[in-house]
């Protein structure tokens, strides 16, 4: 399961084809791998390296730069509790403590049943709704310690399964560019001259 299944391999090729250079697809493909397996496996990185024509070290180098990629098994629910200024001013620390108490783990840990991973995160772009958290990147606004406990109970009971897919899945809708509408990605070095709607003689944008 670590390599892409057939459906995801097709998706991977579709994603790669959108970019003038295949390496640009690296981050989307890492997301796809994480969606399939819950985290990014070594095998997945090797396959992505093959798909976009780089070394596995380059895939790891890019992937490990970014916060969201996890390289070890991760809970079905990744709870990120914001700790940056606005949330901190409004009581983020209490939320974190409530989650730690409720889950019996410290920030950075995963529950033994593999259901929850808890993190203290940085700003999640919902500052007016502080303090806030995300479960698998789905928001919960203006949270209270009691609300955190309730949330964890609901998740554990499977009550939020419709709203919150397992860790790894971001958007549940993928972009699809229909082939009859697609302009297509051209290698930048193969492009000569301006696009069709820009008159060659009158340098529109540059003048």
């Amino acid at each position: 399961m670590a390599r892409f299944n057939d459906a995801n391999l097709t998706t991977a090729h579709e994603i790669i084809a959108r970019y003038p250079r295949p390496k640009s697809a690296l981050i989307p493909l890492l997301h796809l791998a994480q969606e399939q397996n819950g985290y990014v496996t070594d095998e997945a990185m090797r396959q992505i390296a093959e798909l976009v024509g780089v070394t596995p070290a380059e895939v790891l180098g890019t992937g490990s730069f970014y916060e969201m990629f996890r390289f070890e098994p991760t809970g079905r629910y990744l709870i990120n509790i914001c700790g940056t200024m606005s949330c901190a001013l409004m009581g983020a620390r209490e939320l974190l403590h409530a989650a730690e108490r409720s889950l019996g783990i410290h920030a950075g840990g995963t529950t033994p049943d593999g259901l929850f991973t808890l993190h203290q995160a940085e700003c999640q772009a919902a500052c007016t709704e502080a303090p806030c958290l995300q479960v698998n990147y789905r928001y919960r606004f203006k949270m209270t310690p009691e609300g955190v406990e309730q949330l964890i109970d609901d998740l554990r009971a499977g009550k939020l399964d419709d709203e919150i897919p397992p860790h790894g899945t971001l958007a549940r809708v993928r972009q699809h560019i229909p082939s009859d509408r697609a302009v297509g990605a051209v290698d930048p070095d193969d492009v000569v001259g301006p696009p069709a709607w820009i008159p060659v003689t009158v340098e529109g944008a540059g003048s």
């Binding site: 780089v54 070394t55 070290a57 380059e58 790891l60 180098g61 490990s64 730069f65 970014y66």
Partner: peptide, 9 residues
């Protein structure tokens, strides 16, 4: 031979 690379951040 990009076999060594920066990792982490």
């Amino acid at each position: 031979d990009a076999l060594i690379h920066f990792v982490e951040r």
